[in-house]
Design a protein around this nucleic acid. Structure first.
Lengths: 236, 236
DNA sequence: GAGTTAAAATGTTATTAAAATATAAATGTA
DNA sequence: TACATTTATATTTTAATAACATTTTAACTC
């Protein structure tokens, strides 16, 4: 390695993960208490430093796995934060990923071990550093993305009803949609498969369960079908 | 600084800049030849390592200033690239910014000094590392963004005609638009001010010049007006 | 200097998507 | 058995997009 590389400044690189979940009709974020001084005990995002020989993507998966016990999580880069004194203790560049998990499939043990806790996105505690900004930006990205891509399914169980899916969208957008228009638009994508089974115990009539057909989605994408251009506005 | 920070691995952090320009009806990218071994002389993006005590944003501005001689350039973070062997010589994490400049206002001297050269985006030379991917992703972001935000003006001179603006959009999207619909939509935003002056020497009739009213844009944004929801499709 | 030409500017119609509104069907409960 | 609730389907209205037609302007030609 020559002088060009040798002489350059090297900052610390942290991976911070915004973990979204959906529970009891609310969009939630998984937070954890900081384990080291200074600011020990402060609420913040799941985090870890990049390790030697590890790709960014892999590092994010490692942090997520440690926090939730889950593998193969939907995950995407948000942005990189690098204000000089964002961490007053040292110069740390933070690469932020946001992820969507199915709350019911998470590892309770991992949660407890990390002193992690779910918070409704509308009622977050005071957070350390710039983590509040990271969460708000992630939420914004989730809102925008969910309008053009079938991304919400990552937050729901395998099978779900249309009223449940609508509630999720309403939690993400903090806005009521018209149920008739919502149903029409969602079904028009052709990405949902109706099951023969009805949900029991929630409503009198009972709503049919649906599953998201990932295969069909991949197929349409590979055919050059562009969901990004089909907006998803559901009326009032 | 305690053990938690002290023991962590520190990678190199590079800032790579995709610089877009518009010239002679074509969308172009400013490239430069690498000045150090290995791969000395290979084409690539304007680049620089993060300096001690410098914010990411500032570092990007520094790299841009050095390459183009220009200040106050429109600039936005694209993404961060961190495959382990993306630079075979050392572990370098690359933070990519893309920027839009007015070609006619650039500093020719800075160009020459950096052995920099404009390439049409449709005819790029072989590029080092993952720079080709960075450019393609930036172009994608520019395409998406230009549909929802009045971003194209950054690439044009202060005053421009509507046919010129349309040609720019066509270069960005690699697609022909209907001139009547284009004009209607663009003017409907209320962001353009017609000047009394006509362009001479290009067409017989001559097209009126317009300027982009940044003030009006900021005003609408601050009033909560959301351009992001107003799509900009221009027909055929 | 009247007629020709090419591009700019303005205007209209058809099509499609979104929003709003109306009605019917299923099932647990009174 | 009728009542209430919410699921499911269908229709109308409105607005946005796409497609198409005409007029205006000024340089150029003969």
């Amino acid at each position: 390695m020559n002088e060009y590389y040798q002489s350059a400044y090297k900052p610390l690189l942290a991976i911070d993960c915004v973990i979204f979940g959906y529970e009891k009709g609310e969009l939630k974020v998984l937070l954890t208490r900081r384990k080291v001084d200074p600011y020990k005990g402060a609420w913040g995002l799941a985090t870890g430093f990049l390790h030697y020989g590890e790709s960014l993507h892999y590092a994010a998966e490692r942090v997520l796995k440690k926090q939730t016990g889950l593998d193969r999580i939907f995950m995407e880069q948000l942005s990189t934060f690098g204000e000089v004194d964002r961490d007053p203790e040292a110069r740390v560049i933070s690469l932020v990923y946001y992820s969507l998990i199915k709350v019911e499939s998470q590892d309770e043990e991992a949660l407890e071990k990390n002193q992690a806790q779910w918070f409704p996105i509308t009622a977050l505690p005071k957070l350390m550093f710039d983590h509040e900004t990271m969460i708000q930006m992630s939420w914004g990205k989730l809102r925008r993305k969910s309008r053009y891509q079938p991304i919400g399914f990552e937050l729901l169980p395998e099978k779900f009803t249309l009223p449940e899916l609508q509630s999720l969208y309403e939690a993400i957008h903090q806005k009521q949609f018209d149920k008739r228009n919502f149903r029409k638009k969602i079904l028009a994508t052709g990405l949902l498969k109706k099951l023969d089974e009805k949900q029991k115990g929630v409503s009198k009539k009972g709503a049919y369960y649906y599953v998201f057909e990932e295969g069909k989605y991949d197929e349409l994408i590979s055919q050059g079908f562009n969901f990004e251009l089909k907006s998803m506005a559901f009326g009032s």
